[in-house]
Amino acid sequence: MLHTFVALVEDKTGLLARVTSLFRRLNVNIISLTVGGTETAGVSRTTIVAEAAEDRAPRIMASLYKLEGVLDVDDVGRHSAVIRELAMLKIAADQNTRSDLFQLAEVFRARIVDLAPESMMMEITGSASKIEGLVQILLQGNYRILEMARTGRMAMRRGHHASRVLEALGDTTPRIDPKTFSGILRHEAPDLLEDESHA
Protein backbone atom coordinates (compact mmCIF):
# COMPACT_ATOMS: atom_id res chain seq x y z
CA MET A 1 0.00 0.00 0.00
CA LEU A 2 0.97 3.65 -0.29
CA HIS A 3 2.09 5.41 2.87
CA THR A 4 2.27 9.17 3.21
CA PHE A 5 4.74 10.49 5.78
CA VAL A 6 5.34 14.09 6.67
CA ALA A 7 8.76 14.62 8.24
CA LEU A 8 9.97 17.91 9.67
CA VAL A 9 13.73 18.03 9.38
CA GLU A 10 16.47 20.51 10.13
CA ASP A 11 17.38 22.47 7.02
CA LYS A 12 20.96 21.17 6.80
CA THR A 13 23.19 20.00 3.98
CA GLY A 14 22.88 16.32 3.36
CA LEU A 15 19.81 15.66 5.46
CA LEU A 16 17.66 14.91 2.43
CA ALA A 17 20.25 12.37 1.30
CA ARG A 18 20.01 10.72 4.72
CA VAL A 19 16.25 10.49 4.42
CA THR A 20 16.28 9.01 0.93
CA SER A 21 19.18 6.72 1.76
CA LEU A 22 17.13 5.35 4.62
CA PHE A 23 14.29 4.34 2.31
CA ARG A 24 16.75 2.70 -0.04
CA ARG A 25 18.30 0.83 2.87
CA LEU A 26 14.90 -0.37 4.05
CA ASN A 27 14.18 -1.54 0.52
CA VAL A 28 11.18 0.78 0.25
CA ASN A 29 10.44 2.57 -3.01
CA ILE A 30 9.71 6.30 -2.81
CA ILE A 31 6.82 7.23 -5.09
CA SER A 32 7.11 10.94 -4.54
CA LEU A 33 9.05 13.32 -2.35
CA THR A 34 8.54 17.02 -1.81
CA VAL A 35 10.70 19.35 0.26
CA GLY A 36 10.01 22.93 1.19
CA GLY A 37 9.83 25.55 3.88
CA THR A 38 7.66 25.60 6.98
CA GLU A 39 6.32 28.08 9.52
CA THR A 40 9.62 27.72 11.40
CA ALA A 41 12.91 29.09 10.10
CA GLY A 42 15.55 26.41 9.68
CA VAL A 43 13.00 23.62 9.47
CA SER A 44 12.08 21.90 6.20
CA ARG A 45 8.98 19.89 5.59
CA THR A 46 9.21 16.75 3.52
CA THR A 47 6.27 14.73 2.32
CA ILE A 48 7.23 11.22 1.36
CA VAL A 49 4.89 8.85 -0.41
CA ALA A 50 6.24 5.34 -0.34
CA GLU A 51 5.10 1.89 -1.35
CA ALA A 52 5.37 -0.66 1.43
CA ALA A 53 3.36 -3.33 3.21
CA GLU A 54 0.85 -1.91 5.64
CA ASP A 55 2.59 -3.12 8.77
CA ARG A 56 5.89 -1.54 7.85
CA ALA A 57 4.86 2.03 8.63
CA PRO A 58 5.91 1.97 12.30
CA ARG A 59 9.37 0.73 11.42
CA ILE A 60 9.78 3.37 8.72
CA MET A 61 8.73 6.07 11.17
CA ALA A 62 10.97 4.72 13.90
CA SER A 63 13.90 4.60 11.50
CA LEU A 64 13.23 8.17 10.33
CA TYR A 65 13.28 9.35 13.93
CA LYS A 66 16.66 7.69 14.40
CA LEU A 67 18.21 10.07 11.87
CA GLU A 68 19.87 13.03 13.53
CA GLY A 69 18.06 16.19 12.43
CA VAL A 70 14.65 14.60 11.97
CA LEU A 71 12.41 16.54 14.34
CA ASP A 72 8.99 15.13 13.79
CA VAL A 73 7.37 12.40 11.73
CA ASP A 74 3.69 11.96 11.05
CA ASP A 75 2.03 9.12 9.22
CA VAL A 76 -0.63 11.43 7.76
CA GLY A 77 -2.09 8.70 5.59
CA ARG A 78 -3.63 7.25 8.74
CA HIS A 79 -5.48 10.44 9.53
CA SER A 80 -7.90 12.80 7.90
CA ALA A 81 -5.65 14.97 5.80
CA VAL A 82 -5.61 17.21 2.77
CA ILE A 83 -3.29 15.78 0.17
CA ARG A 84 -2.45 17.88 -2.86
CA GLU A 85 -0.23 17.81 -5.85
CA LEU A 86 0.56 20.39 -8.50
CA ALA A 87 1.06 19.50 -12.13
CA MET A 88 2.01 21.54 -15.19
CA LEU A 89 1.11 20.17 -18.60
CA LYS A 90 2.26 21.49 -21.93
CA ILE A 91 -0.21 20.41 -24.59
CA ALA A 92 0.04 20.74 -28.33
CA ALA A 93 -2.76 23.10 -29.34
CA ASP A 94 -3.62 25.29 -32.28
CA GLN A 95 -6.54 27.56 -33.11
CA ASN A 96 -8.82 24.61 -33.71
CA THR A 97 -8.27 22.76 -30.45
CA ARG A 98 -7.69 25.67 -28.09
CA SER A 99 -11.28 26.32 -27.12
CA ASP A 100 -11.93 22.67 -26.28
CA LEU A 101 -8.92 22.69 -24.02
CA PHE A 102 -10.15 25.86 -22.32
CA GLN A 103 -13.40 24.08 -21.55
CA LEU A 104 -11.60 21.02 -20.26
CA ALA A 105 -9.49 23.22 -18.01
CA GLU A 106 -12.59 24.81 -16.58
CA VAL A 107 -14.18 21.45 -15.77
CA PHE A 108 -11.03 20.32 -13.97
CA ARG A 109 -10.47 23.72 -12.35
CA ALA A 110 -7.09 23.89 -14.04
CA ARG A 111 -5.63 27.19 -15.19
CA ILE A 112 -4.12 28.12 -18.50
CA VAL A 113 -0.84 29.80 -17.60
CA ASP A 114 0.86 30.05 -20.99
CA LEU A 115 -0.36 30.27 -24.54
CA ALA A 116 1.85 29.88 -27.59
CA PRO A 117 1.01 29.49 -31.29
CA GLU A 118 1.36 25.72 -31.15
CA SER A 119 0.97 24.86 -27.50
CA MET A 120 -0.56 25.84 -24.21
CA MET A 121 0.35 25.19 -20.61
CA MET A 122 -2.11 24.07 -17.95
CA GLU A 123 -1.55 24.24 -14.24
CA ILE A 124 -3.65 22.00 -12.06
CA THR A 125 -3.70 21.48 -8.31
CA GLY A 126 -5.49 18.65 -6.61
CA SER A 127 -5.36 15.09 -5.53
CA ALA A 128 -3.40 12.64 -7.59
CA SER A 129 -6.56 11.07 -8.96
CA LYS A 130 -7.83 14.41 -10.21
CA ILE A 131 -4.60 15.03 -12.09
CA GLU A 132 -4.62 11.53 -13.47
CA GLY A 133 -8.22 12.08 -14.54
CA LEU A 134 -7.25 15.13 -16.58
CA VAL A 135 -4.35 13.30 -18.19
CA GLN A 136 -6.60 10.45 -19.12
CA ILE A 137 -9.17 12.70 -20.72
CA LEU A 138 -6.47 14.50 -22.68
CA LEU A 139 -5.04 11.27 -24.01
CA GLN A 140 -8.46 9.90 -24.91
CA GLY A 141 -9.16 13.14 -26.78
CA ASN A 142 -6.02 12.55 -28.83
CA TYR A 143 -4.29 15.61 -27.45
CA ARG A 144 -0.52 15.43 -27.39
CA ILE A 145 1.00 16.10 -24.01
CA LEU A 146 4.38 17.57 -24.88
CA GLU A 147 5.63 17.84 -21.32
CA MET A 148 4.35 17.11 -17.88
CA ALA A 149 5.82 18.06 -14.51
CA ARG A 150 4.31 16.89 -11.22
CA THR A 151 5.42 18.00 -7.79
CA GLY A 152 4.51 14.88 -5.90
CA ARG A 153 2.16 15.04 -2.99
CA MET A 154 2.06 17.49 -0.13
CA ALA A 155 -0.02 16.66 2.87
CA MET A 156 -1.39 18.36 5.94
CA ARG A 157 -3.64 16.97 8.60
CA ARG A 158 -7.10 18.48 8.94
CA GLY A 159 -8.22 20.21 12.10
CA HIS A 160 -6.21 21.58 14.97
CA HIS A 161 -3.52 18.99 14.97
CA ALA A 162 -0.10 20.64 14.88
CA SER A 163 2.79 18.97 16.56
CA ARG A 164 4.73 22.17 17.17
CA VAL A 165 1.76 23.87 18.74
CA LEU A 166 1.01 20.91 20.97
CA GLU A 167 4.57 20.80 22.15
CA ALA A 168 4.59 24.49 22.88
CA LEU A 169 1.46 24.04 24.94
CA GLY A 170 3.18 21.34 26.93
CA ASP A 171 1.00 18.53 25.65
CA THR A 172 2.97 15.38 26.26
CA THR A 173 0.41 12.91 24.96
CA PRO A 174 2.39 10.38 22.94
CA ARG A 175 1.85 10.89 19.24
CA ILE A 176 2.23 7.21 18.65
CA ASP A 177 -0.31 4.74 19.83
CA PRO A 178 1.79 2.17 21.70
CA LYS A 179 -0.66 -0.48 20.59
CA THR A 180 0.67 -0.08 17.11
CA PHE A 181 3.78 -1.77 18.38
CA SER A 182 2.20 -4.60 20.22
CA GLY A 183 0.37 -5.80 17.19
CA ILE A 184 -2.99 -5.76 18.97
CA LEU A 185 -4.60 -2.87 17.22
CA ARG A 186 -4.58 -2.48 13.49
CA HIS A 187 -5.16 0.97 12.14
CA GLU A 188 -7.49 1.36 9.26
CA ALA A 189 -5.76 3.53 6.73
CA PRO A 190 -8.06 5.58 4.54
CA ASP A 191 -7.70 5.25 0.84
CA LEU A 192 -4.96 7.64 -0.10
CA LEU A 193 -6.18 8.07 -3.61
CA GLU A 194 -9.59 9.16 -2.44
CA ASP A 195 -10.36 12.48 -3.99
CA GLU A 196 -10.65 15.28 -1.48
CA SER A 197 -13.79 17.28 -2.10
CA HIS A 198 -13.08 20.06 -4.52
CA ALA A 199 -16.46 21.38 -5.30
Binding site: P58, Y65, F181
Partner: peptide, 13 residues
Protein backbone atom coordinates in the same frame (compact mmCIF):
# COMPACT_ATOMS: atom_id res chain seq x y z
CA UNK B 1 11.58 1.14 18.28
CA UNK B 2 12.65 0.11 14.77
CA UNK B 3 13.38 -3.37 16.10
CA UNK B 4 9.88 -3.97 17.43
CA UNK B 5 7.91 -6.28 15.13
CA UNK B 6 10.72 -6.23 12.57
CA UNK B 7 11.29 -9.97 12.28
CA UNK B 8 9.05 -11.44 14.93
CA UNK B 9 5.64 -10.06 15.81
CA UNK B 10 5.44 -9.47 19.51
CA UNK B 11 2.49 -9.26 21.85
CA UNK B 12 3.89 -6.56 24.09
CA UNK B 13 6.64 -4.17 23.11
Amino acid sequence: PAEINKNVRVDVG
